[in-house]
Design a protein around this nucleic acid. Structure first.
Lengths: 159, 159
DNA sequence: TTAGGTGCAAATTCTTTGCACCCTG
DNA sequence: CAGGGTGCAAAGAATTTGCACCTAA
């Protein structure tokens, strides 16, 4: 596991406390340690992994609290999910290079094409990570359909 | 549902038959119709949606056959999945803009940063889809760790 | 003919929920 | 002290698997 510098974690913890206070969310021991766990790694852990990590410090914490807490933190904007979260597998038969516009409200993914984006110049640091097979640009936003019927937000505090 | 032109679907069906024959995968009615269903839409359907669509033509098809078939098609390279498929929700506390290198074998996502990629110029067609909130570049490939221990492929024909 | 494919039902895996008790603000 | 938060156990949703029968090659 990649450990982050204490300084970054401390900064994040500070913001965590501020945001919780501002939004009236209680600062519980469990919440704190769940956030600390995610804030302290670059590994993009799943709920189970966070659970195991936190359990070293709070042996009595339960997995469902970890789930609830992660979504709360997500809804507070303190953490984000990778890819289209809470989603099932989706399939695509279009093998031509194309890019994605993902609606953060309805979760729908729209394709778009762009010759320019097909030929992006990636930094050398990427080559150090592995052998590149493909590249796509993922734009996130709110699609027009959802913009109209505003107020149908998808992830309101674990509802 | 967005219907694609017959011509494109026919092209895809042709390739489907070729690939199946070449790789020794049997051309069954179910497989054909599952592929046709995905090939005929831009909607990135999930397994359940494909199932409902195909059931109009093959009322006896079962959901598990649809699942099996979709992964087979994926492994044959005839379709792709959106995002990191077959994955659970993963979380990230790094809110600074960054980009992703996703390993297609182990599924791990590595972060990388690039000032250039932070300021991409998107085509106007994207604005027509919705209000843009953020943009990230997703690079797919095989990470060095997996490249070493080659042969540990993740999705070998639904295993 | 025969190995691979399918349908069914049951099992798994991941995630969410109802409820009684607990603790922060 | 009040209302949100937690742990537990149980429910739910999505996906996979074992097995006997079926069918494309």
């Amino acid at each position: 596991m990649v450990q982050l510098r204490k300084k970054i974690v401390d900064q994040r913890m500070k913001r965590f406390e501020e945001v919780c206070r501002e939004s009236g969310v209680k600062l519980t021991y469990q919440r704190m340690e769940v956030f600390r766990e995610v804030a302290g790694t670059e590994d993009h852990p799943d709920a189970e992994t966070v659970f195991h990590g936190v359990r070293k410090r709070i042996p009595t914490i339960s997995l469902d609290t970890v789930y609830r807490t992660l979504w709360t933190l997500n809804d507070l904007g303190l953490i984000k999910t990778l890819g289209a979260s809470r989603e099932r597998s989706r399939f695509d038969a279009n093998l031509d290079q194309h890019h994605h516009f993902v609606c953060t409200q309805c979760g729908h993914t729209y394709d778009f094409i762009s010759e320019t984006l097909n030929n992006l110049h990636l930094p050398d640091s990427v080559d150090e990570l592995g052998k590149i097979e493909s590249t796509l640009v993922e734009v996130r936003g709110v699609c027009h359909k959802c913009a109209k019927k505003a107020g149908t937000k998808k992830s309101n505090i674990t509802k």
